[in-house]
Design a protein around this nucleic acid. Structure first.
Length: 438
RNA sequence: GUGGGUAUAGCUCAGUUGGCAGAGCGCCUGGUUGUGGUCCAGGAGGUCGCCGGUUCAAGUCCGGUUAUCCACCCCA
């Protein structure tokens, strides 16, 4: 027992915002949601926890999963022990689809905006709790390649609407990488892909070094890999460039066809917003075709602000039906936090209130309450100042919260209502039944 | 998990070779009568992260511990 104060420290990696910042974040979420719905994606929400075996179904991410346990659980009670907080929205989505096969209409297009948790060391742009905005399309047997192009288009429209600093969406296709590496006779293409993905981090020399020391590749193989990784461009002409490297495999040409299709489909987007880049691989091993990764141009090492790709059978662990899909995720928290840190967010009011109704005196409370109610009835967000403080203090309250208008009910019988515009300082006679804000 | 930095007021930080705890911003009050922002005056607010050691004396030096930040790993 103690009556000492607990320091109200924020928890590292678990961001929270002051009201005026949160208001901006809510507007972002609204904009993202509207755009997802504009393309016909429907919303689902899955529980924050999944069975550990679901979370572990793909990849070995066990170390970053937070597990659930009651503080006072009996020693022999492990009923919750098999639950973990989800670390992304794709795996829960796959489980959801597999579990609701009979209730869903396919191709199933869903969006999901939820928090996820990862037990990693927090850093700039790296959080332990953050919000992802996912869209995925999933369909039995096959998903049209059109979706591979539609998803980046949606993301492009959202990022444009949010007016983000310069960014680019990088595109690749796992089939190209895997086919190319197999065509080179590399035994472990998956591991080679993983190493190649570090290109922007450790550079071509570093990647070459790892490829030769860890995978034992020959000098020719290494230089071929690096030649491939160096190829990038905004249109399908890069397909020819890759072809000129002289490696042949069926998988490779399949990947090249797909990539060319996606690039051609997006050719109307502004120059540079979508680029193919052979050094992009994505760490997650369930991607099998198109992969996406977006970054800020000014802060390339900040990490990806958006990522996704195509997977042939993500739900394979949950059902025998073949359920390929393609999806993309916007890293809302990562993007938002960066803009906040760079001072690039324009914040306004800290509350949604349009009008503060002044309480002139305790005797006038009835009038003031009625005035507030009338304004609310006309669709305005209105709060009544509940203490008969000095008028200056009441105005100051409105001013500090960013409330644009202060309403003065009559201070004496027979006097008119007045409304003050805090932006201009102007104060005019007004009728609560007809007043319109500018 | 590995390596390095930091820890002083609500926030951002100063604090000399060890000698009584500071600034800016923010907050509260006042500058008469029914009006915010600017300006002026006043005020509140700190076991100097925590535990131990050296010393007449520790925010300052030493050891430990915790938190935090950065890099690695990995990723939105």
């Amino acid at each position: 027992m103690t009556d000492q104060l607990v320091k109200p420290l924020p928890i590292s990696g678990f961001p929270e915002w002051v009201p005026e910042v949160r208001l901006v974040e809510q507007h972002w979420i609204d904009a993202i949601r509207r755009k997802f719905e504009r393309y016909g994606f429907c919303s689902i929400e899955t529980p924050s926890v999944e069975a550990l075996e679901v979370l572990m179904a793909k990849g070995e991410t066990s170390k970053e999963v937070y597990t659930l346990r009651r503080l006072q659980a009996d020693a022999d009670d492990d009923s919750d022990a098999r639950l973990g907080l989800h670390f992304d929205l794709t795996v829960p989505f796959a489980r959801y689809v597999a579990g609701h096969l009979n209730d869903l209409v396919f191709p199933f297009k869903r969006y999901q905006i939820q928090r996820v948790w990862r037990g990693e060391r927090p850093q700039e742009g790296r959080f332990r709790e953050f919000t992802q905005c996912d869209i995925d399309v999933i369909n039995p047997e096959q998903v049209s390649l059109q979706f591979d192009a539609e998803l980046p288009r949606i993301v492009h429209e959202i990022m444009t609407e949010l007016d983000l600093p310069a960014w680019s969406l990088y595109l690749n296709n796992r089939k190209i990488l895997q086919g190319f590496y197999e065509g080179l006779g590399i035994a472990d293409p998956i591991e080679a892909i993983r190493i190649a993905d570090k290109m922007d981090k450790i550079g071509a020399d570093g990647v070459g070094e790892l490829l030769s020391t860890q995978l034992g590749l020959s000098q020719e193989q290494v230089s071929a890999c690096l030649d491939l990784a160096r190829i990038n461009g905004g249109d399908s002409s890069i397909v020819d460039a890759i072809g000129r490297l002289g490696v042949k495999s069926d998988l490779l040409s399949e990947g090249l066809d797909e990539l060319a299709f996606v690039l051609d489909s997006l050719s109307d987007l502004p120059e540079g917003s979508v680029r193919a880049d052979m050094s992009i691989a994505r760490g997650l091993d369930y991607y099998t075709g198109t992969v996406y990764e977006a970054k800020f141009l000014d802060w390339p090492s900040y990490g990806s602000i958006c990522a996704g790709g195509r997977y042939e059978n993500l739900a394979g662990s949950f059902t025998k039906r073949s359920l390929p899909g393609v999806g993309i995720s916007i890293g809302l928290t990562r993007i938002f936090a960066k803009l906040l840190a760079e001072g690039l967010l324009t914040t306004g009011a800290s509350c949604p209130t349009d009008v503060l109704v002044v309480l002139p005196s305790e005797q006038r409370r009835g009038d003031a309450t009625a005035t507030a109610a009338e304004l609310r009835g006309r669709g305005l967000n209105v709060e009544l100042y509940h203490q008969a403080d000095k008028v200056g203090k009441q105005i100051r309250y409105a001013s500090r919260k960013g409330i644009p208008y202060v309403w003065f009910p009559p201070f004496d019988d027979g006097k008119p209502h007045e409304v003050k515009d805090l932006g201009s300082g102007e104060q005019v006679v007004a009728d609560p039944a007809t007043w319109q804000r500018d």
